[in-house]
C-alpha cells in the first residue's frame, strides 16, 4: 500500500500496463516529455522511450483515428484527450469507427485494445470549455464502454481493467479529484470490475446514486440526511456503459426511492436513462418519483458555478422531497 492521489494512481496504472506489454502505447497532446498537462503520463517517456510514449499534433480526430488503427493492428493504445470538452472533433472516430469496428466487420477486425483517457467534469473554475461531463453522448453508442472512477484506488483498478478489456473503453477522470486528496492504493497490480456498481453505504429509506466526483458530494448529502434520521443507501455506478441495472434495482426494491445526481445537464443525461429503467423495473416498489439532481440545461458557467452545480445542499433538499412525497 502507498499513499497516492488520483494522478499518481493513474500514472502507476499506466506504468504497470506499459511494463507488462511492449505493444502498449501512451500518446496525446503534451503527453510525451512533459508528461501531460496534468502530469498523468509523467516519467513514462523516460522509462519506455519516445516510440511508446509521445506527443501528437493538436488533432483529436487524428489521435483517435491513429489509435483505432493501432488497436486494429494489434497494439494496445492508450490515447489521451487533453480535456473531455475537446473530445468532439474525435466523435466520428469514436462513435462511427471504434464503437462499430467489430460489428461492421463481422469480427474480422476489432479495436478492443483501445482505451481513451480524458480529464472530465467541473469544479476547477474551468468555465464552459474545461468542465463538461459528456458521458451521456457516449452512453448512447453501442460498442463502447464508459468508466468513471471516484477515488485513487478505484482509478487504478478500473483503469487497468479498461486497458485490458477487449472492447474500446472511454475512461473519464474527474479532474477535480486529481490532487484533491490521497488514499491507500496497493503498489501491486489489481483490477476492479467494469459494469459493476458498488454499494458504499447500506440504508433503508432511499437509494442515492452517482459516479465520479459526485460521489463525494452525494456522501455529504447522505450525512446531512442521516442527521434527520433518514437512512440512505449510497451507490457508485462506476460504469455508465454497460451499467449495473441489477444492483440499482435491488436497492430500489428495498428502499422504494431513488435519487440520481450528475454534473451534466438534466435533459437526456444518463440520470434520465436510469430513471426510465428503474421505473420500469421497480414500478410497484416506488414510493415517490425518481429524483434527478443535475446541472442546468445551460453551458457550464464560470462566475456562477456554485449556483449551477448539483451540490450537497441541492441533493439534501431532493432527498427530503422524495421522503416527504
Amino acid at each position: 500500500m502507498a499513499k497516492m492521489n488520483m494522478l499518481q494512481a493513474i500514472n502507476n496504472a499506466l506504468d504497470i500496463a506499459m511494463g507488462e506489454d511492449d505493444t502498449t502505447l501512451c500518446f496525446g497532446e503534451d503527453v510525451g516529455h512533459f508528461g501531460g498537462v496534468f502530469r498523468a503520463t509523467n516519467g513514462l517517456q523516460d522509462k519506455y522511450g519516445k516510440l511508446r510514449c509521445f506527443n501528437t499534433p493538436l488533432v483529436e480526430q487524428g489521435i483517435i483515428g491513429f489509435a483505432n488503427g493501432l488497436a486494429a493492428q494489434g497494439s494496445r493504445p492508450i490515447a489521451e484527450i487533453q480535456f473531455a470538452d475537446y473530445i468532439f472533433p474525435a466523435f466520428d472516430q469514436i462513435v462511427n469507427e471504434a464503437a462499430k469496428f467489430r460489428y461492421r466487420s463481422g469480427n474480422e477486425f476489432d479495436v478492443g485494445k483501445l482505451t481513451i483517457r480524458a480529464p472530465y467534469g467541473g469544479g476547477i473554475a474551468g468555465g464552459l470549455y474545461h468542465s463538461q461531463s459528456p458521458e451521456a453522448y457516449f452512453a448512447h453508442t453501442p460498442g463502447l464502454k464508459v468508466v468513471i472512477p471516484r477515488n485513487p484506488y478505484q482509478a487504478k483498478g478500473l483503469l487497468l481493467a479498461s486497458i485490458r478489456d477487449d472492447n474500446p473503453v472511454i475512461f473519464f477522470e474527474p479532474k477535480r479529484l486529481y490532487r484533491a486528496s490521497t488514499g491507500e492504493v496497493p503498489i501491486e497490480d489489481y483490477q476492479l470490475p467494469i459494469g459493476k456498481a458498488e454499494v458504499l453505504q447500506a440504508g433503508s429509506d432511499i437509494t442515492l446514486l452517482a459516479w465520479g466526483a459526485q460521489m463525494e458530494v452525494l456522501q455529504k448529502a447522505a450525512d446531512l440526511a442521516a442527521n434527520d434520521g433518514i437512512s440512505c443507501e449510497v451507490i457508485d455506478l462506476r460504469s455508465i456503459l454497460p451499467w449495473d441495472i441489477e444492483t440499482i434495482a435491488n436497492s430500489v426494491v428495498k428502499t422504494g426511492r431513488l435519487l440520481v445526481t450528475q454534473e451534466a445537464p438534466l435533459t437526456a443525461g444518463f440520470a434520465s436513462e436510469i430513471a426510465a429503467t428503474i421505473q420500469q423495473e421497480c414500478f410497484l416498489h416506488l414510493e415517490s418519483p425518481v429524483e434527478r439532481v443535475c446541472g442546468l440545461d445551460t453551458p457550464y458557467p464560470l462566475a456562477l458555478e456554485k449556483e449551477y452545480v448539483s451540490d450537497h445542499l441541492k441533493i439534501y433538499e431532493a432527498i427530503k422531497r422524495s421522503i416527504n412525497y
Partner: peptide
C-alpha cells in the same frame, strides 16, 4: 473486408481510414 487477406473492412464514413492507416502502420 478480410483479415486473412489483410484488407480492412470498408466503412462508409469518408476518410476515416486515413488516420487509422497511420496508426496501423505505426504499429507495424
Amino acid at each position: 473486408g478480410s483479415s486473412e487477406l489483410n484488407y480492412m473492412t470498408i466503412s462508409s464514413p469518408l476518410g476515416t481510414q486515413i488516420p487509422q492507416a497511420t496508426g496501423y502502420a505505426y504499429g507495424q
